[in-house]
Design a protein around this nucleic acid. Structure first.
Lengths: 222, 222
DNA sequence: ATGGTCGCCATTGTATACAATGTGGCGGAA
DNA sequence: TTCCGCCACATTGTATACAATGGCGACCAT
């Protein structure tokens, strides 16, 4: 966290993800100055960067607001993610090398170990971190900068995080079984197989998310 | 062009599109201050907005550079555009109303009129404007904010503009015939048909673009 | 001659002061 | 009472001054 802009970015982002700043909230620059302990200039910079990542939207002369998605938007996002992550899997099957393959297996193994232990002490954030590593590795293996750019604008952290909150242990096991099958498909270079299982993987997440979604913006406990 | 930020944004963007700022150029804030006649603050704001739209990339403590795409990136961009614009067409076929349909027919008619005249006096910018209206109308008819966001990050104006430069009159006629067929498919609500012809439309543009592409960044005259 | 290191300068990052804008409330008139 | 217009304030937009960073070249040591 070397620069003031980064500091402001991280603090604001964290508050959005933690739900302190609810969807639609008007983020006033002066308040953020007090919260972050930096001047307005880096705060404004941070808000622009958050706009790039679609955490917020800025309306000229009005201010910056925490982004919110309609139910329809969320459906569309999952729909598009299923399609694009499917492409990622297909391309990864054609291009993956031993390094990325090893990273995938390790992420799978780490999650598997989490699930083998008593489920009670499972740390959702730890799961999310490993899950992210898995998907990022796939993305790198697919070796397409435009594809990576598009997906990054589609994988909305608030939604992904809340999806995980809706998971129970059985759901997590199913999720990691998909990972296992993806590794298998990639191992034999079967792009169509990899694409299909990846689409199932995302669509399953979609259903789990909807099951715990509440229109008001709140979410059911896991 | 009310605000200084908008002014800077438009000037810098125009210079990039016109090729004054070539790909990879280091855009120095102080130079842009002199060019735009505003202070550094709105210039920096404008550069952040240009980064959102992928015209430039910013590296911390190093500066802002005009974005450049590799040949592979360009292929990927067209590939993804074909897929996503296909989805747009499919969804538009299911949801389009009379207003959007009329707009599509008008854009088609305008382009048709351009091509009926003597080809010598054809204004490429005018064609581009109507072409954009056509595709934006399709996007609105598809009625999906996430889809619109993704495509906007994929439709790189420099590439689209240079694609048109590579067109000859026959290519333009083919392009507008695709538009005609899209309207027909949408009229009978055949989403699969619309999707297929849209994919062909983008892939044809891809080939026309590659035919006039020169690796150095220059392009053959039309 | 070559390799590394130090310091200067160009450039970006940050803070603060001031200007402009848009909004909400108050008051007056119909 | 209700609607319109105006004023004041809260908030964002802009300019300028200062701080920090990093790249590049010169210089020294080997």
């Amino acid at each position: 966290m070397a620069t003031a802009t980064e500091k402001a970015y991280d603090i604001i982002r964290r508050n959005i993800l933690d739900g302190v700043f609810e969807a639609g909230t008007h983020l006033k620059e002066e308040d953020l100055v007090r919260l972050c302990g930096v001047s307005r200039t880096p705060v404004r910079d941070a808000l622009r960067r958050l706009a790039i990542d679609h955490y917020v939207v800025t309306r000229p002369n009005q201010g910056t607001f925490v982004n919110q998605w309609s139910l329809k938007d969320i459906h569309d996002i999952f729909e598009l993610r299923a399609m694009l992550e499917g492409v990622v899997a297909r391309r990864a099957a054609a291009a993956i090398g031993p390094g990325h393959m090893a990273a995938l297996k390790q992420a799978f193994g780490t999650i598997q170990a989490m699930l083998a232990d008593d489920a009670a002490d499972l740390d959702v954030n730890l799961f999310l971190a490993e899950n992210k590593i898995f998907h990022m590795t796939m993305l790198q293996a697919a070796d397409s900068a435009p594809l990576a750019t598009m997906l990054s604008s589609l994988v909305q952290p608030p939604i992904v995080a809340r999806t995980a909150l809706g998971y129970n242990v059985e759901d997590l096991r199913q999720s990691n079984e998909h990972h296992r099958e993806l590794i298998e498909a990639l191992g034999v270079g079967d792009g169509a197989w990899a694409e299909a299982i990846m689409q199932a993987h995302i669509r399953a997440a979609h259903r789990k998310f909807m099951a715990s979604y509440r229109p008001g913006g709140g979410f059911a406990a896991p």
